[in-house]
Design a protein around this nucleic acid. Structure first.
Length: 585
RNA sequence: GCCCCUGUAGCUCAGUCCGGAUAGAGCAGCGGACUUCUAAUCCGCUGGCCGCAGGUUCGAAUCCUGCCGGGGGCGCCA
């Protein structure tokens, strides 16, 4: 099953072959303002053949007329301008396509032919630090991609590469000992991780004695000292609890099962160095073990090394990232690895991938992709900060979202009960935050703006959710009237497109599979957002112009089917973005 | 200095991968539409040297080159 434009593309392949005299000519079917779609291939082919474009266009039309497969698909085909072919689908073709997706729980989306094993690395907060706005995009984008890839039939493994290892843990553990475990457990369970971290940091900066203890403690941690490990686990456990609170409030897929922190890769670090040495990639430079990566230079124009073992002997994140690649490819059997990591890491990741390729750990068909993203900015176009000047805390962000949305819901729909209202407020508030993040191209920075994201006008989650809620309202009423809220096969048989709004909406509904495919081809959730917004606009226009419940029986049945499909598509699409669709707002 | 990302309407953004017709939305502004399924909406209007300059092409926001503005990165933090 494919949307009409994709369907026409494949129908036209033999036509183009006949006209151009060779196979594999793209018919260049594109959405059009002048018709349902336009075929642009005539101009290019005409040039190759040295013939007038309109003549070639006419020949394409002749071939289409002669093609049995094309019968009944088009209501009209017209040559326009220099040689464009404007096409209009026949209503019969659209209706029969709609009937197919109306009975399809997958809404016309076929699973991929060859599923990949995909590891998605996202979220990655730091132990003993509170999650803040800097973790928003990776968490929201990674989660949306995970949902989409799973739906397409891929085997998706989530990995939360938490920062649970490194030199800060010496001071954190010493500070934990100073305060007493019970005291710390009580404090941290209240969620004040940042306070704890800052106290430790201040002590570290102000006391030589504390610094010495901290450094010694790092050595103990790295050597696997039992008591130190126990204290470390205590900190990790308390932090994990905090992460889970945030994930739960946000509604993301991540659980403890997905934790794959830096600590996990420590036992593999020596192994990485050995294998790099064996591969002849290891060099010594200024006391450190490094790999020089072709194509990368430093400030002075000299070859830029990736340091894999520090002069003092320790490993760093380059080493653990390499260990990670090995683990994902060789143990997990991944053939696609997505790194949902901020744009500033671009060079680092390129170097890690390049080294992994040089070492032979990463080679086709196995693929590593940096799903990079820009920053979240405040109204001043600088990194979003709270009043105190620190990055805005995630927990505060979500509380404020629900509270602002709650005010709006209370104002617009005062009849709702308190419990129902708070549930809706959560869906709308969290949805708004997620959607505003997902709806702009991830490579760009975006400005975080409460008023805009919570507005019910424009390309926002509330607008899409509202469209969905209005449809649910229609079904509540129709159910009250006839006692059935389910779409029947008989109703699907009544399907007809009698107005321009119904027709436009039908085209939109049929485009869902290709919207999803486009989205995943570049791992760009904003493409799905753009599609869903446009679908909502088509629906509200339909809603204004086409009465459903008061229409004559056959029309009413048909429109109920269209409403049902629209609601399912909106709910499903938003679901893939991790956004809920309440039935009332 | 080198590398990466980015520049489209007053504002926020699609469109750039894969070149096609007078460059699209939304917000804001102006003008209309509520005895009717949620007006949290809809309909219309106004608004653009697509950063600049060359080049390729029948055709460039889209491809190529150079420049300018903004952001980021460039050896032992992760």
């Amino acid at each position: 099953m494919a949307d009409p434009i994709t369907a026409v593309e494949s129908l036209l392949l033999p036509v183009m072959e006949a006209v151009a005299g060779r196979a594999g000519v793209d018919p260049v079917v594109r959405p059009s303002e002048h018709a349902d779609a336009q075929i642009n291939a005539a101009l290019g082919v005409a040039k190759q053949l040295g013939r007038p474009p309109r003549e070639v266009a006419q020949e394409i039309l002749d071939q289409i007329a002669a093609s049995p497969a094309c019968q009944g698909v088009f209501a009209s085909l017209e040559i326009a301008g220099p040689g464009f072919i404007n096409l209009v689908f026949s209503d019969e073709f659209l209706v029969s396509s709609l009937r197919e997706i109306a009975v399809d729980p997958r809404l016309g989306v076929t699973p991929v032919a060859s599923a990949r094993r995909v590891v998605i690395d996202y979220s990655a907060p730091n132990v003993a630090k509170e999650m803040h706005v800097g973790h928003l995009r990776t968490t929201v984008i990674g989660d949306a991609l995970a949902r989409m890839l799973r739906f397409m039939g891929h085997e998706v493994i989530l990995e939360n590469h938490v920062g649970d290892w490194g030199t800060p843990f010496g001071m954190l553990i010493e500070h934990l000992i100073d305060l007493g475990e019970d005291q710390v457990a009580a404090e941290l369970s209240l969620g004040d991780l940042d306070g704890f971290y800052k106290q430790a940091r201040n002590k570290f900066d102000g006391s030589d004695e504390f610094q010495d203890r901290s450094r010694h403690r790092v050595v103990l941690l790295q050597s696997g000292d039992a008591e130190t490990t126990r204290l470390w686990k205590l900190l990790v456990g308390l932090s994990t609890k905090h992460f889970n609170t945030v994930y739960d409030a946000l509604g993301v897929l991540l659980t403890d099962d997905d934790l794959a922190g830096e600590s996990m890769y420590q036992p593999l670090m020596g192994h990485v160095i050995t294998r790099l040495a064996t591969a002849g990639l290891l060099n010594e430079s200024e006391g450190a073990d490094v790999v020089f990566v072709p194509g990368f230079t430093n400030r002075e124009g000299d070859p830029l090394p990736l340091i894999v073992q520090k002069g003092a002997g320790g490993f760093n994140y380059a080493t653990s990232d390499l260990a990670c690649v090995i683990d994902r490819v060789e143990r997990l059997g991944a053939d696609l690895m997505l790194y949902v990591v901020g744009a500033p890491q671009q060079q680092h990741l390129s170097m890690v991938f390049a080294v992994a390729e040089l070492a032979g750990w990463l080679s086709p068909p196995v693929e590593a992709v940096h799903v990079s993203f820009g920053s979240v900015l405040g109204p001043d176009r600088k990194m979003l900060k709270s009043r105190s000047g620190d990055p805005m805390k995630f927990a505060d962000l979500l509380t404020e979202a629900a509270s602002r949305a709650g005010d709006a819901v209370a104002a617009k729909n005062p009849d709702l009960g308190a419990e129902q209202r708070s549930e809706i407020a959560r869906a709308v508030g969290i949805g708004a935050v997620k959607y505003s993040d997902l709806s702009t191209d991830r490579v760009r920075d975006y400005v975080f703006d409460w008023d805009r994201m919570l507005s019910f006008d424009g390309n926002t989650a509330p607008y899409l959710q509202y469209a969905h809620a209005r449809i649910c309202s229609i079904f509540r009423r129709s159910q009250a009237a006839d006692g059935s809220g389910e779409i029947s096969l008989a109703e699907i048989q009544q399907l007809a497109l009698t107005t321009p709004q119904e027709r436009a909406l039908a085209l939109g509904l049929l485009a869902y599979p290709s919207a999803l495919a486009d989205t995943l081809s570049t791992y760009s959730p904003h493409k799905l957002c753009t599609y869903l917004f446009s679908l909502s606009q088509l629906f509200t226009s339909f809603y204004e112009h086409c009465p459903v419940l008061n229409a004559p029986a056959e029309v009413r049945s048909s429109r109920l089917v269209i409403c049902d499909l629209t609601a399912r598509t909106l709910s499903h699409g938003l679901g893939l973005l991790g956004i809920d669709t309440p039935e009332q707002m």
